[in-house]
Design a binder for these strands. Structure first.
Lengths: 133, 133
DNA sequence: GTAGACCTTCCAGCACGCTGGAAGGTCAAG
DNA sequence: CTTGACCTTCCAGCGTGCTGGAAGGTCTAC
């Protein structure tokens, strides 16, 4: 499987795949006689995992860590659990931060609606947006 | 109040404050005869708000939007509510993504612990970490 | 009047996660 | 045999949020 095919399968660009290889997320595949990358089918799964994890907000460094764990595929030892616990803590902290943000926004929203009736200014254009641009 | 004082009060660097001014988050203050920035006391509040919002995960662009709303300080119109609703949706999406990530990590963690007893390899060093570096 | 802390501007670069382009090699179809 | 799609490498730059440094002006204290 060449890089273009894999890219199409994974929903990524060939550029991104080369980048991931360079970043240590994807092992360097064997090459054809011509020097083309020649991927096994499993590469698509791995990329799908990377794509999903990235979409979920993990950094490439974090994903690399998780993949390394998976790649070892051995009885996980204490170090691994620690690693995972650290990831968990970070994620939970981020969730807590975002929940606070959400509350703040909800407050703002409510206040906004409470005063809404007296709508926009004389020109019919919201002053706020003109400033926001 | 000069920039260094403000920086100390806000827990930011003078560099960052100049950067925020340049980024449109902080209005350009008056200058002294010598050309030094001369901030009113309120600037510290504004910076505190920016700092907290940034810590909560809002992008500077988002914060700028919220500040613009606040600055207008007028009966908020529909546009504003829409703006806030959009922010809210983004935040809620991010929370959902992170919750999914958390679940994935928790699963991993549990599986890790289930197999743990048979601890590390013969060298006493976890193979996984040697690969992770 | 001179040292040292502070301020000014401007330009540069960091890490992150890509993306684009140039310059060239390869391969299958017509 | 040529066209065009595909591949290779390498180098450059984007946007985000800063941070650092150079080169210079200013202010305070001794």
């Amino acid at each position: 499987m060449r890089i273009g095919t894999l890219a199409a399968a994974a929903g990524l660009s060939a550029k991104t795949i080369r980048f991931y290889e360079q970043a240590g997320l994807l092992p360097a595949p064997p090459r054809t006689a011509a020097g083309y990358r020649d991927y096994p089918a499993e590469a698509a799964d791995r990329l799908a995992f990377i794509r999903d994890a990235a979409a979920a907000g993990l950094s490439l460094a974090e994903i690399r860590g998780v993949l390394t764990i998976r790649d070892a595929g051995q009885p996980p030892c204490r170090h691994v659990t620690t690693l995972i616990e650290t990831h968990l803590k970070h994620v939970e902290q981020r969730i807590a931060d975002l929940l606070a943000t959400r509350t703040a926004l909800q407050d703002l929203h409510q206040r906004a609606q409470a005063v809404d009736p007296a709508d926009c200014g004389p020109e019919g254009i919201c002053r706020i947006l003109t400033t926001t641009a």
